[in-house]
Amino acid sequence: MSDGAGMRRRGFMTGAALLAAAPAMAEAAASRIEAPWTGGGDIPRAGGVIRYRTLGPSNGEPVLLLHKVGGWLADWRAVAPLLAARHRVIAMDLPGHGGSAMLGRPPHVQTVAESAALILASLSELGVNRFAVAGNSLGGIVGINLAARYPERVSRLILASVSLFAGQSREELDKVEADRDPAVWTADWRPKPRSMAQVSRFGTVNPVIEEEQNASRARADRWVRPSERGVALSNTEALLAKTTAPLLMIYADRGYYTRYVETGRRARPDATIVQVAGAGSFVHQEKPEDTARAMVAFLG
């Protein structure tokens, strides 16, 4: 499988047309993504449902895959088949993202702990009591919460380009929001489609991946910013230091997120650290073979 396998998809819209058509057009885009999943469903939870998809042997060690803020479980579709020979892969949409539809308007803040609790309850519904968890960005922060708060449930923790910072106070966050970027957000905090110039510093330099992310962000719509606020109010660095599960950190060799490699090393000196050349913040999408190779070696 080449690095771009599974990424070249037709029918994604960009620009103002995508925002105007969201969420209907983003839902249509999601339905056109070729996916490797062989199982899955929707798990009813208080306030909505959590969508999941599975791949691999039912008796394999469970590996939970969680996506970035504004992403969806399809972000992991190129990595999942490379894990599924030995593991039961479970990819989940985080609350308000992808097919995990929540009732009513989203809260001002969707805390990471709330999202982690919904994911954990969903796994319990599936009879999954102990599992490895891998997450990118927001998904990794949810994974850290799971590992720190429920160590008896998490066997291994894998972070793929995850921000590890001390967080902000609510007052600091409010000050930041006073300078809302009109190029990124509407007046009522709906995400606008982003250009490569906007994301290349911290995200990806692959336009196909960014085109898909515009679709997944449109699908999450008003849940994107509440989820970001939850991250901003979390002391992820301190929480990581409380984890005890074996830790793998996968980062790229460029981009905004590389600054967190040393933060992770300080918090968990025992961590296994892999840096993938030629990738950005979405290393699992840009370099799925390298990412899967590191994960398989770590999972053992």
Rank of each mutant, 00 (worst) to 15 (best):
Q110C: 13
R153K: 14
A101S: 12
D253H: 06
R293H: 14
L173N: 05
I33T: 11
L157W: 00
E262R: 02
S31P: 12
L233C: 02
R201E: 15
G4F: 05
G47T: 07
S161T: 05
L146V: 03
V128D: 06
A197N: 12
R10D: 15
L94A: 02
K287Y: 11
F282D: 03
A218D: 03
P288H: 08
E177F: 12
V162G: 05
G104Y: 06
D174K: 08
I144N: 04
W223N: 03
R259A: 14
I209R: 09
A232C: 14
V154Y: 03
L83P: 07
P107F: 06
E152T: 13
P95Y: 01
L146P: 00
L18E: 01
I158F: 05
A80Y: 00
N214G: 09
N129V: 14
D181T: 10
A116N: 04
G230H: 06
N136S: 15
L83D: 10
P81I: 07
A279E: 02
L118N: 05
L19T: 01
I90A: 06
E61K: 12
I50S: 02
I209C: 08
A232I: 04
R8C: 14
G56V: 06
S122K: 07
Y257I: 08
R88C: 14
G41P: 05
L146E: 06
S227T: 14
V205A: 12
A215W: 05
T186A: 13
G104R: 08
A91I: 02
G40W: 02
L123A: 02
M25K: 09
N145C: 04
A46S: 11
P106Q: 11
